[in-house]
Amino acid sequence: MEKQLKVAALCNGTVIDHLPAEKLFTVVSILNLEQCSNQITIGNNLESKRLGTKGIIKISDRFFAEHEINKIALIAPNAKINIIRNYQVVEKHPLQLPDEVRDIIQCPNPNCITNHQAVATRFHVVDEKNALRLRCHYCEREVAREEVKIK
């Protein structure tokens, strides 16, 4: 029995798959897709063997720079990035968090300068082996990935 596609196939572009359903719209916002004029297909609450329900984003004729796409690793580390050319998957990217994350996270420390003045936040990724932690470049507090608040 042929699997029926719930989301239309893509000719050229990027597919972000295996997003946890509750993270989908955060990913849309991180990638600033509201401002993107390309054709975008968004599916959510689709059936997934692994996740139960999942989200998927297909963007036509758009290929992201690695530092852009890697931001997703912050909130959906197991998402899959597929590059499509002429209906074929030509590249699969495992996500990798960059050493530094700029202007995406809000510092959870209410006494941090970045929560009081117009300062772009910067976080250093400190430990990726056991539990990923991020250290604020300004107030130097460390937070676990789970505590991170996306701006």
Binding site: N109, N111, C112, I113, T114, H116, Q117, V119, C136, H137, Y138, C139, E140, R141
Partner: peptide
């Protein structure tokens, strides 16, 4: 505020000496 001195050092053309930034 914590981080104020780091921020100041990034915008200032002259050296900043941190004499205490919050609890940092």
């Amino acid at each position: 505020l914590e981080g104020a001195a780091r921020y100041a050092s990034e915008i200032s053309p002259i050296p900043i000496i941190n004499a205490g930034d919050g609890a940092n």
